[in-house]
Amino acid sequence: MQFTINGETHDVEPDIRASLLDVLREHVGLTGTKKGCDHGQCGACTVLVNGRRINSCLTLAVMHQDDDILTIEGLGSADNLHPMQAAFVKHDGYQCGYCTPGQICSAVGMLDEVKKGWPSHVSDKLDSVSLSNDEISERMSGNLCRCSAYPNIVDAISEVSGLTPAQKEAADA
């Protein structure tokens, strides 16, 4: 099977049952993406496929041979952090760090959804979306953090989204 991951082509021969997550970690050696629950409940395995965030544990690798797959390793590096990674560092958006790659990939995908005007469960109006801390919390509910760094995660995402403190308050009011 051939995969395009972070712009590079990889030829691997996994079992037909392999999830995209298992191919990333076990066959390609990209261990930044984490296995938490392996049932789509925790979000630790979140990657971007054709620009959309999905749970890589809950999809068969064989179904993604023609897709553009982006993992945390492709988003940024220690020397060249993605703005979302830099914001997580600045705001201390983690403790143990296990959920962090999934949180960051999910947040990047989520902000793109907001840019497209997609509403959420907490949006007052379905046809005009404005971000707030409540919106961020709802839209990130598929990413669990057992250390409960949620306030700092929301702060990090809020900064990258360009929300000013006044906007946050106004939108939350």
Binding site: G40, T46, I54, N55, E113, R139, G142
Partner: peptide, 12 residues
């Protein structure tokens, strides 16, 4: 739809 699942799951 928006009341169900998570952003990642709704994408798939």
């Amino acid at each position: 739809l928006l009341a169900g699942a998570s952003g990642q799951l709704r994408n798939k």
